[in-house]
Design a protein around this nucleic acid. Structure first.
Lengths: 218, 218
DNA sequence: TAGATTGTTAATCGATTAACAATC
DNA sequence: TAGATTGTTAATCGATTAACAATC
């Protein structure tokens, strides 16, 4: 598990890029597409692309031709487990949480948003509608109960304010959720004493991105 | 410029972590803090931390003691250019844009939000208030004029819908903005023919993060 | 066939980890 | 002094790039 984690992180990121690029490109599904062409649309070198496919045990190309676009999409989809998807809850039913949850990308990836959690009285018990689906808003203190009744909840998307971050993170981990995508301003890491548990945290942290950008400026 | 880009990306990410961790920890500024302690709060190894400091030419530690917390913060702040900060515009004045712009992290990092841009008639000409500051909302077609009058605008934060992404990205690049933080669902890369320009794009892309998380689950 | 593109190995490059002398 | 921690070098590890035989 840890090994998989360590080895593949970058490969997974890159094949996500290939997948996205192929999905949104306009060519028909049955056309051949070479690694050089994928390089052109992703910016990732053709050597790297072939190396990644080799690493993943995929030899689906045809010499002189390239890869059939549809086959490639299907294979990558399989590796990324997109057919299985995931059940997700959103912590924070404010602007940020509602905005992200409304992205159309979720349904296309079989990611099912099961509930919002918040602490504001005026929100609890209400619903938020996304594409004809009404998603309930619960109190954060009810997360344990919800998760045990709706197991497995795979991922929690954190969209609360900086002040609330540590508190909700604790509750999410305590509820047994193994995947966290963190959109709060605060960087999170595995809680002390749980470094070896198979919790996966991704910090999509505006603060860090801004440091990067500022650094580049000068 | 390219070299700097290549060499330092990871180091910058890590020192951003150190910086954030030191800022939010509760110890007084004049206390000594060892690389082992920074490891404990960041999860990054003490060897790595000392290596990074060495790489950056910082030798501000004292044997047997560690680093004075306040000194360390100041040095990292200098490297990250936080004293200079950046002028930023937000593309998209919807829920996502307003939510991100409201984060308190901007002012603490000298990031000045100068304007929103949108296409919705009912928003254009209005203002959005953040901490007693009224930030104007302009039409996206006025970006060129705005940028040339308010030069330099360092960064554009993209928060539009997937459909609008390519269009606004083009306009942002055409306006001469060199830094892009992309919060739309679509992955962006340097436009064809501009691969060598010093445009810096950071894709904080929920789609990619979700792929990662889903992949970990199985 | 000739040309193009894969799959795969080998070479290079870079980043992390380990180690330890210096020293406060 | 003895113990602890840095700064720095060397060793290891892993990832990317280059190259090319296989072959359609």
């Amino acid at each position: 598990m840890i090994k998989k984690n360590k080895i593949n992180q970058r490969v997974i990121r890159r094949i996500s890029y290939y997948y996205e690029a192929l999905l949104k490109d306009s060519l028909p599904e049955d056309v051949y597409i070479s690694s050089a062409k994928i390089e052109a649309i992703t910016g990732i070198s053709n050597n790297q692309i072939r190396q990644d496919l080799f690493y993943l045990g995929l030899s689906i190309g045809k010499q002189k031709k390239g890869y059939i676009k549809g086959d490639m999409i299907r294979e990558l989809k399989g590796i990324l487990n997109i057919h299985k998807g995931a059940d997700l809850i959103v912590i924070g039913a404010g602007k940020l949480g509602r905005a992200l949850a409304s992205y159309k990308i979720f349904s296309a990836r079989n990611i099912r948003i099961k509930a919002f959690f918040d602490i504001k009285d005026e929100l609890i018990g209400k619903e938020y509608q996304i594409d004809n689906t009404h998603i309930p808003i619960y109190h954060i203190d009810d997360i344990d109960e919800f998760v045990s009744k709706n197991s497995p909840i795979d991922v929690a998307l954190l969209t609360v304010s900086e002040d609330a971050t540590d508190m909700v993170f604790e509750k999410v981990v305590a509820a047994g959720i193994k995947g966290v995508v963190n959109y709060t301003p605060r960087i999170l890491q595995k809680p002390p004493g749980k470094e070896n548990e198979d919790i996966k945290i991704i910090n999509d942290c505006l603060a860090i991105s801004l440091y990067h950008i500022i650094y580049q400026l000068y």
